[in-house]
Every structure is written in structure tokens, then in C-alpha cells.
């Protein structure tokens, strides 16, 4: 399975990976190193920081190594839960200013609250954007965001509904890497 192959390659080099496809070699690059980690089984988790002094949790990892709540410097890297609840979202219908975003339009982003209590700003995927709702249960996937100038795929984290309302079929994507329909 491609997802497993990719996971192993990500594990071994921790970043850029080369995927063999029918059309030849394709490079896949995470949007930023250290946002997520994938186990050999394809289990994907966002990576955060936890403060050993006050217990605050951050996503992404605190680059400074300092807890911005208590200024303590004893932080540990933790794996965050891969399911959460949408607390708010918007659907964007026009290209963002600045030319930084190369993904599809319209697109949706908002905030997901994880069981740990931390809120994550994220893109949404895996359903008709009009079906998104506050309170919806969503799970983490790693997907293509766009291609860079060299044709490499830029991967990012997104959340998708665990189950679409009125749709009885199981919509859970296990590895997430097979869903690149956008």
C-alpha cells in the first residue's frame, strides 16, 4: 500500500520523500517539518508541546522551547489526538491575498478542539464544504495542498468529517494519503 510505503519513507528520512507513480517519480514535501508524525501502520498524529511545569499544550511545537503561559523551559514533545470537534469554520470563495496559497478554491478552514483541550487551526476536506457544521466530529488526514514550482506535492494536515450526516457509509480514511481528489 502506498500509504505504508510513504509512512516508512517519512519515518526514515523525516521529510522529503520520493514516490513512484505511473507517471514516474514524484516528490512529496511536508509543508513544514515537525507538524505531524506517522507510524509505520499509517497512524498519523499532529505533534505539539506540553509544558511540564503548568500543563499547557501547544500546537505546533514551541520552537522557542519556552512555555508562553508560564515561561517555563521544560517542554516535552507530545502526540496529539487525531480526532476532534469543529468549533468554528469559514468557507473561502476567493483567492487569498499575497499569492502564498496554492490550494483549491473554494476551501474551508477553521478550528478543531482536540480532547487534550488545545485548538488547532486547520483546513477541512473529505466532504462537500457546504456540509461542514460546528460541532461535527472530524479526524486528521495528511493530504496534498498544492504543487510547488518544481511539480513536487506539498503535503499538509487537514481534518475531515468522521461521518457525513445522512451518509451511512463509513467515511473514515485510514491512512489519508489516498485522498487527493481536490
Amino acid at each position: 500500500m502506498e500509504a505504508v510505503n510513504l509512512a516508512e519513507q517519512l519515518k526514515t528520512n523525516g521529510g522529503e520523500t520520493i514516490i513512484m507513480t505511473e507517471s514516474g517519480e514524484k516528490s512529496r514535501i511536508p509543508i513544514r517539518k515537525g507538524l505531524w508524525e506517522q507510524s509505520g501502520e499509517g497512524d498519523v498524529r499532529l505533534i505539539g508541546s506540553s509544558c511540564l511545569s503548568c500543563g499547557e499544550i501547544f500546537f505546533p511545537v514551541q520552537d522557542s522551547g519556552i512555555c508562553t503561559h508560564c515561561q517555563g523551559d521544560r517542554l516535552e514533545v507530545i502526540k496529539l489526538s487525531s480526532q476532534g470537534v469543529i468549533t468554528s469554520f469559514s468557507v473561502v470563495y476567493q483567492k487569498p491575498a499575497g499569492g502564498f496559497y496554492g490550494g483549491p478554491i473554494p476551501y474551508s478552514y477553521g478550528f478543531v478542539k482536540l480532547p487534550e483541550g488545545v485548538k488547532v487551526e486547520t483546513l477541512f476536506t473529505g466532504c462537500d464544504l457546504e456540509e461542514l457544521e460546528v460541532g461535527m466530529e472530524v479526524s486528521l488526514v495528511i493530504e496534498k495542498l498544492c504543487e510547488n514550482a518544481e511539480g513536487a506535492e506539498i503535503l499538509t494536515y487537514k481534518f475531515q468529517p468522521v461521518k457525513i450526516k445522512g451518509d451511512k457509509s463509513n467515511n473514515v480514511h485510514t491512512g489519508g494519503l489516498n485522498n487527493e481528489t481536490n
Binding site: I31, R32, L35, S90, V92, P96, A97, G98, F100, Y101, G102, G103, Y107, Y109, E121, L123, L145, I154, T156
Partner: peptide, 9 residues
Amino acid sequence: FELQMGFNV
């Protein structure tokens, strides 16, 4: 990465 993910709207 926030800019690349389109969070600046």
C-alpha cells in the same frame, strides 16, 4: 506555513 495554508484571509 499559515500563509501557505491560506489562513491569512
